[in-house]
Amino acid sequence: MGQIRKIDLLKILLRSFYIQSGWNAERLLGLGFGFCLIPVARRLFRDRKSISFFMQRHLDFFNSHPYLATYALGAIAAIEQQALVRGWEDTRSISLFKTRIIGPLGAIGDTLFWQLIRPACGLLGVVLLLVCGWCGAIIFFILYNLLHFSIRIRGVFSGFAKGFDIVRELSLRGTKKYFQIMKYLVSILCGGGIAIVAAKSYQQESSLAGPVAFAAAMIISALVLRKTRLSVDMLVVIVIMSAIIIGLMI
């Protein structure tokens, strides 16, 4: 019977980049999750029956933020090894663990990356694009992926080291103060970006028309998005058409 090695964890890490390839509405990341754990199946089991049961367990429903899925993958690798070594007959605890970890992985990942890091890096990148050209794109790419890769790599090794106990580490409670500090910093960046864009538009137009159009669109967009359920696509159409009509009237 094999022991999971570091190379297996690295293979899981590389496969985790494709965990969403087979996304479907019934089992969400189920196919990808099973795909990522194939190195574990190959390492731990020799007979086809055991491999078959293992894969059927892990092709089941699973959902997670894609970057944080490595926490679950690493933990499952450790738990499956433990189950094999101790001769567990009942694997329901593994399925229960997967169900329990779905919530934190989704909540933390969505809050951290989709609501904080991606818009923050996007904002910084756009401001830098406007100020110093294409290097803004490179800075966005490097900064974002430093955080992205560090979470993925940490996830698989930390998950494997802690097994079941990884659930205790994954809690929004411990991260709230860091999220708050990030929000303050991004707010400062947002305010700074507004000043830069207003100044640049005044410089390019040599009049107040540009900054006024920018400011008006920004305020209207913020109000509409807060108060209504209008989609971004419709908002873009309305704002653009309004700006053109007002521009033609002036």
Binding site: G210, A213, F214, A217, M218, G247
Partner: peptide
């Protein structure tokens, strides 16, 4: 002007 308005939408978001 619509270009600046488009930037405004982004910052509004």
């Amino acid at each position: 002007l619509a270009r600046y308005a488009m930037l405004g939408v982004g910052f509004g978001v």
